[in-house]
Design a protein around this nucleic acid. Structure first.
Lengths: 348, 348
DNA sequence: TGTTAGCACTCTCCTTAATCGAGTGCTAAA
DNA sequence: TTTAGCACTCGATTAAGGAGAGTGCTAACA
């Protein structure tokens, strides 16, 4: 599948892709010969282009147009023709410290980094929350807000904080609340969220009821609410720079824009997209390589971020296949690093 | 300004507006005569339309086109020609109870209702968080997460919960934490957030330092973080159904869509828009009536929502001036009521 | 044998012109 | 006061005619 191209073909392929990324239109032999000094005539380039088309690296929109890169062409470009070293993205890393001051919690950090990534790349960025499967419950605590209103606070070791206000019909005594806190703390803390399923919670409930004297009605009400807080309900995905897709010539068509924006409006879809990326550190999906049907004309550049060496979430950009890969790759690389750092710091 | 129109003019104006809302294009005398049985000939209607144009209720895109309503025309329509009774929006109110089960916190409730409103109206919906000026701090508590990591929890009487993880260089003893909790609780709880400005916090800081022996460095670090949590930084505005604007013919132009989406991407802008609505219960701003320059071709229908009779936030829709006002008005009405109920319940 | 110049051919895009049709305002009659 | 008739206006659609960019092929050349 991946044949070795001779140096001249490589140079020509690279030149076509670079030029196409800039101009967004088919590239002809004459333009190529003029702009890139390849030391050969347009006719020779034409021959080479015909070869590259036969090999599947280029496509021709119609008989008398120039060539555009195919998905395979981009794949070759990304794998063989560009260096993936992390280019310096000046002025970003220096601000990390200040950045953190302004960001309240993990959700803010993640959505903030998605926004920053979109600003850097001028493509739409997306980032997922830490997966609950790999998160442990670090702290569970019930606070009394008023006579019959409690606040349930859940904190994971991935620094996710979850709140739920629980309104009861009657009040719970301070003593019972503190007993509950001790009990729940013992039973639930340091467990993987994945293991806190309803069957385990049922067990805990049984045990608790045996030990403490609680009005059953009151308890049921509390426990229902409590159980609800553990439902996973899919990980949130944060978006940044949705309007950037409008700047791409490939979305000049209103219908396409509509389709794309509708897609980005659906959280399940975003989940599907970002979860279609396997575990690798930084992964690139080009056009048809995407599993999700509706983005087979798009490319994804997605990196994993970590909390103290544990892969917990993803951050990346989505744009047309005609993407500025080198710039995007280094941006995603840098931002995912910063995100890992910030979020590790936040989780203590 | 608001002259009394004779009945026939009223009927014609109403017919033109209703027809225009459906077709989105200029309405001619013939179509009007055919579709609405006004019992007069097109020629008569033409005369009336010319009158209505002179009075400013109609406009003519160009000499030989039909008429479209002007902002003044819409204003008359909204004020005089439609009834504002809350139409039944079936299947919505019944689900209120179930709805609440799924919604974790106030933010979820607000953004959920914005989404629902957009689905009901097929326009973009927006809703603001409870204003901090009218919110009181109900509970402040510091929890220990790990040796040198604390969680600061702030709860307002508008049920807004604010979390901040604070990482310190050294650890704080349990005794000191509980002292801090007692002290902060005394000093800060039941105060209006508006009054907890940095000068007041400085005072509290002074008093605290006098009473308790804390490593000054450690304390400073903690207090900086603490102070940060009180910064208002503008109220959040939640959006729903952004992509609906693409379905409006008036946004057939890519440039207009781009402008609009950019606008909705800026949170300050949304704040400005939603704050431009004064205190009235349900307010409608049509086209030029809007203060924000960029939405002078749009209409707003915004209602206030309440927490136990206290006006705390806004919820409404934004769409083209050619909006289905009757349907939108009753939807916004109903949804703002539900939101008030849900959020009052959540705040206990 | 690989490279290059020349040339006829193709296909899109843009501009211009022509036509269509919905709608108007005016006039004059009912 | 209302209505029918009519000339006129103007946007929208369609058609035709280049202009331009690019190709593939052939034949000559190093």
């Amino acid at each position: 599948m991946v044949e070795e191209l001779d140096p001249r073909k490589k140079r020509i392929l690279q030149a076509i892709i670079q030029e196409h990324i800039i101009s967004a239109s088919p590239i002809g032999s004459r333009t190529l010969a003029k702009k890139y000094n390849l030391d050969v005539s347009p006719a020779t380039i034409r021959n080479e282009m015909a070869d590259l088309e036969d090999l599947g690296y280029l496509e021709q929109p119609h008989t008398s147009a120039g060539r555009i890169p195919s998905d395979k062409g981009y794949r070759y470009y990304v794998d063989q023709l560009i260096s993936r070293k992390k280019n310096e993205v000046p002025g970003i890393i220096e601000n990390t410290e200040n950045l953190y001051q302004d960001l309240q919690d993990v959700q803010d950090i993640i959505s903030g980094m998605a926004k920053m990534l979109s600003k850097m790349t001028h493509y739409t960025a997306m980032a997922s929350e830490p997966k609950s499967q790999v998160s442990r419950l670090k702290k569970v605590e019930i606070m009394q807000l008023a006579d019959n209103s409690l606040l349930l606070v859940l904190v994971t070791d991935t620094a996710m904080v979850n709140n739920k206000i629980i309104n009861l019909d009657q009040s719970l005594s301070t003593a019972k609340i503190s007993y509950l806190n001790k009990f729940l703390s013992e039973k639930l803390e340091n467990k993987l969220l994945a293991n806190l399923d309803s069957s385990y919670l049922k067990e805990v409930e049984k045990e608790l009821l045996a030990k403490v004297d609680l009005s059953v009605d009151l308890f049921k009400q509390f426990y229902n609410e409590f159980e609800g807080a553990f439902e996973p309900g899919g990980v949130k995905v944060y978006l940044g720079g949705t309007s950037y897709i409008l700047e791409q010539p490939e979305f000049n068509d209103l219908e396409k824009v509509k389709k794309m924006l509708k897609l980005l409006d659906q959280e399940e879809m975003l989940n599907k997209i970002i979860n279609s990326i396997s575990g690798s550190d930084l992964e690139i999906k080009i056009g048809q390589e995407n599993e999700v049907e509706d983005i087979k004309n798009c490319s994804l550049v997605v990196a994993t971020y970590y909390i103290s060496e544990r892969a917990v979430g993803k951050i990346g950009v989505i744009g047309p296949t005609r993407m500025e890969y080198p710039r995007v790759i280094s941006s995603v690389d840098v931002i995912s690093d910063i995100l890992s750092k910030l979020i590790s710091k936040a989780s203590g």
